Simulated assay, not measured.
Amino acid sequence: MYDPNRLAALVAVAEAGSITRAAERLGYTTPALSQQLAKLEREAGTALLVRHHRGARLTGAGELLVARARRVLDEMEQARHELARLTGLSGGTLRLGTFQTAGIQLLPPVLSAFRRAHPDVELTVAHLEPPAGVAAVAAGDVDLALTHSYEPADPVALPASVSVEPVLVEELVLVTAPGHVLADGTARLPLTELAGQPLISMAPDHPARRGVEAVLARAGATPSVLVATPVYALVCALVSAGLGVAVVPEMVARTAVTPVSMRLLEPGDLRRTISVAHRTDESAPAADAFRALLRGAFGRAKQAAG
């Protein structure tokens, strides 16, 4: 039997015309989605996609499977909708908080799946940069909030009424202007190579990143521009203009709107964990259903990447 998540991935590639664009839509990394598609092809026993320089197209077998997959997925969505009515999800409101990167890159596909499954639930989304989302959950202002933490960092105590559930872990990577001397190469770049490099720093007013920036300082990177908070679109724009290099989450680097080059670092232990914060002292059907969708979407991505 075919995994419905892999069928959904094939349908997404058919609609997007590209594995990369489909991965962005689904919240996968491109390698993770490619692995899922490869597993589906092994299950099918035949090629389903032809990769080319502009993207990917379906083979005849792929077209046949996509047509069937759409029917299967439609039936599953209808089943979720009918079950929702039985479990009290035929109305009400789900209040979400999110920070900018997650709100743009991760939240839309999960919200879209939630809306398809539970069309009668009213959705509200608030922009809450960490740690404000956790505080809003504790205060009851939102039901769930996407938040993040960095490694290395000192542990941060959570309110007693709030728990966080990790949904996605990503490395921090180096971004430079195209053509920069450190952009030349595909191997991981030792941190010692940052010695003397002008660094766009985000540490002054952002406690979560201080541990990361301390590691970069020990490697010899020299702060050149101070950004009060990590507005990553601004950071990448400054990097693109040649004002320095920066260390940002991989998702940020891959989706930068200004041209930058990306390089993995060695060792690869600088990370950002994206989590969903929720209350532990109460249960709400809509919030529980949304968390289940998050686990499904990003749990698959983590397993495939591993």
Rank of each mutant, 00 (worst) to 15 (best):
Met1Gly: 14
Tyr2Lys: 02
Asn5Lys: 09
Ala8Val: 01
Ala8Phe: 02
Leu10Ala: 08
Leu10Phe: 12
Leu10Val: 08
Ala12Asp: 10
Val13Arg: 11
Val13Asp: 11
Val13Cys: 09
Ala14Asn: 04
Glu15Trp: 05
Gly17Asn: 04
Ser18Thr: 07
Ile19Phe: 00
Ala23Pro: 04
Glu24Ala: 13
Arg25Asn: 07
Arg25Ala: 11
Gly27Met: 06
Gly27Phe: 05
Tyr28Arg: 07
Ala32Ile: 05
Ala32Phe: 11
Leu33Ala: 03
Gln35Thr: 15
Gln36Phe: 02
Lys39Thr: 01
Ala44Asp: 02
Ala47Asn: 12
Leu48Ala: 06
Arg51Asp: 11
His53Lys: 14
Ala61Gly: 08
Leu64Lys: 09
Leu64Glu: 13
Leu65Trp: 12
Arg68Gly: 05
Ala79Tyr: 12
His81Tyr: 14
His81Ala: 14
Leu83Ala: 14
Leu86Asn: 10
Thr98Glu: 00
Phe99Trp: 11
Ala102Phe: 14
Ala102His: 11
Gly103Ile: 02
Gln105Tyr: 05
Val110Lys: 04
Val110Asn: 04
Leu111Trp: 00
Ala117Asp: 05
Ala117Phe: 06
His118Gln: 01
Pro119Asp: 00
Val125Gln: 01
Val125His: 03
Pro130Thr: 06
Ala132Leu: 12
Asp143Ala: 10
Ala145Gly: 02
His148Ala: 14
Tyr150Phe: 15
Glu151Pro: 01
Glu151Thr: 13
Pro155Cys: 05
Ala157Ile: 03
Val162Tyr: 08
Val167Pro: 01
Leu168Ser: 02
Glu171Gly: 14
Glu171Ile: 05
Val173Gly: 10
Thr176Trp: 07
Pro178Lys: 00
Leu182Trp: 13
Gly185Arg: 05
Gly185Pro: 09
Gly185Ala: 00
Glu193Lys: 10
Pro198Phe: 06
Ala203Ser: 15
Pro207Ser: 12
Val215Gln: 01
Ala217His: 15
Thr222Cys: 06
Val225Trp: 02
Leu226Arg: 13
Thr229Ile: 05
Tyr232Pro: 00
Ala233Gly: 13
Leu238Ile: 04
Leu243Gln: 12
Gly244Tyr: 01
Glu250Leu: 12
Val252Thr: 11
Arg254Met: 11
Val257Met: 12
Thr258Arg: 09
Pro267Val: 07
Leu270His: 06
Arg271Ser: 13
Arg272Gln: 15
Thr273Lys: 11
Thr273Glu: 10
Ser275Thr: 07
Thr280Met: 09
Asp281Gly: 10
Glu282Leu: 09
Ser283Leu: 08
Ser283Gly: 01
Ala286Cys: 04
Asp288Met: 09
Phe290Gln: 06
Arg291Tyr: 09
Arg295Gly: 13
Phe298Thr: 02
Phe298Val: 03
Arg300Ile: 08
Lys302Gln: 12
Gln303Phe: 06
Ala305Gln: 14
Ala305Pro: 00
Gly306Ala: 15
